[in-house]
Design a protein around this nucleic acid. Structure first.
Length: 234
DNA sequence: CTCCGGTGGG
DNA sequence: CCCACGGGAG
């Protein structure tokens, strides 16, 4: 029947993911994402945070707010140079200016939050992906954190952490990993919300490119901390 | 695979 | 000083 839904990932079990979420919440406390004022700001933040630290996004958002540009119509009608200047701290300011504009146009065409909320998740996802500048992760950020749909967001941190744990290979496709987590935890918006936020926190603070395993709340069960790091290392 | 990019941390 | 950052498009 479904040709788009990948089969569940064997290494991603409900037990493991529930354990992961519990351990991370115990270590960081609840993250209660998304850190934005309004649902529209979630869409803006989702573009601005592409390959960019959130601290820089916050400054860009504040400058948009001050300039009166934190509004879909204002963003579309504004001089692109003014938008680019406002979001400069977030980097990629020229591409992101175009992407914000593209997203705002679709947002208005689709009837803003009210109109889009009426659509089924898969249809809405396709509409978001059709926007130039919105890829799978950005679309899923929006679906989960603005529309509260039970969609799990896979990012670079997710891959790195799950791979080091030894639960996945690491080269699986995006949809495979998303589907794997979703199948294991069931359609649970609150769990997907918190798990992704916790994964980001761990990826930033502990499970970094050079991992700080001694400080990691997962090290007792982690293949990487146990020394199973892949590669020809001695 | 390459480009887009300012900013804070190591 | 270098590098990594809630990615995506051409």
């Amino acid at each position: 029947m479904s040709t788009t839904a990948p089969r569940p990932h064997p290494g991603l079990t409900e037990e493991r993911l529930a354990w992961l979420l519990e351990r991370l919440v115990a270590h960081h406390g609840e993250q209660h994402w998304w850190p934005a004022e309004t649902a529209f700001e979630v869409l803006v933040g989702a573009i601005l945070t592409q390959n960019t630290a959130w601290s820089h996004v916050e400054r860009a958002m504040e400058q948009l707010r001050v300039a009166g540009l934190l509004d879909p119509v204002a963003l579309i009608e504004a001089d692109p140079e003014e938008v680019a200047t406002a979001i400069r701290p977030a980097g990629y300011f020229n591409v992101k200016t175009r992407r914000l504009r593209n997203l705002c146009i679709t947002y208005l065409q689709e009837g803003c939050m009210e109109g889009m909320q009426l659509q089924r998740t898969e249809a809405l996802r396709e509409k978001l992906l059709a926007v130039n500048g919105v890829g799978r992760e950005t679309a899923d950020d929006i679906l989960l954190y603005a529309f509260h749909r039970p969609v799990f967001v896979v990012d670079a941190y997710t891959r790195r952490i799950l791979q080091r744990l030894g639960w996945i290979q690491g080269d699986e496709g995006y949809e495979r990993l998303r589907g794997g987590v979703e199948a294991a935890l069931g359609p649970n918006t609150a769990a997907f919300n918190e798990l992704h936020a916790q994964i980001v926190a761990l990826g930033k603070d502990t499970c970094r490119p050079t991992p700080r395993c001694p400080d990691c709340p997962l090290n007792a069960a982690c293949a990487h901390a146990a020394g199973d790091a892949a590669g020809p290392a001695a």
